[in-house]
């Protein structure tokens, strides 16, 4: 078995007996290894998410095995599966109920763009109603790809300022989605 990559200490100033790092980085690191997902699983991709949680792929290695079905406790909204127009307000509602910092991952073709379901009843990508951080292609994506997506979210979490959520750009983004 190959050596598992363990997270390194954040860059900081180390000296005799002290190690200082900026709070941003430390908290970013902490956040990235404690991303509790809210599995918004509507269809096929949800089944693959089960496989990702299963023993072979084991999402818990990244500290994200605690699914938070309550949006208040979740950090990462994983939208897996087709979102019909009937469902869209619910997705938005769940997103609004989540506390900052929150990330959104659109897993699979349907959630990202509608996939093959270019029909009157299907929302053509959830990025029309909520901002999406990571899109995972595939129909459904393999568990490996879902883990890739999670690692990308981790990367975003680590490289994001503690107060990015108060920046103008972010507020603008939310305003463009009619979210206040």
């Amino acid at each position: 078995m190959k050596e598992v990559k363990i997270v390194g200490a954040p860059d900081g100033h180390s000296g005799a007996g002290f190690f200082a790092t900026s709070l941003d980085q430390a908290i970013g690191l902490a956040r990235s290894y404690s991303l509790w997902p809210l599995p918004f699983a509507t269809s096929c991709c949800g089944i693959e998410f089960m496989a990702t949680m299963g023993a072979h792929y084991d999402i818990s290695r990244f500290g994200s095995e605690r699914p938070s079905f309550s949006p208040r406790q979740a950090d990462l909204l994983m939208v897996m599966g087709t979102i019909a127009k009937k469902m869209a307000p619910v997705v938005k509602q769940v997103y609004l109920q989540m506390a900052e910092p929150r990330w959104v991952m659109a897993v699979g073709a349907c959630a990202s763009s509608g996939g093959i379901f270019d029909t009157y009843s299907v929302l053509q990508g959830i990025d029309r109603i909520i901002p999406v951080d990571v899109y995972v292609p595939g129909c459904p994506p393999r568990p490996e790809q879902i883990i890739d997506g999670l690692m990308q979210i981790q990367y975003l979490a680590q490289n994001e300022s503690l107060r990015r959520r108060n920046t103008d750009e972010y507020q603008e983004l939310l305003t463009s989605y009619n979210i206040q």
Binding site: T42, A84, V122
Partner: peptide
């Protein structure tokens, strides 16, 4: 009907 995808129409 929350994931109605119109299979029959497609």
């Amino acid at each position: 009907g929350y994931i109605h995808r119109a299979f029959e129409k497609i």
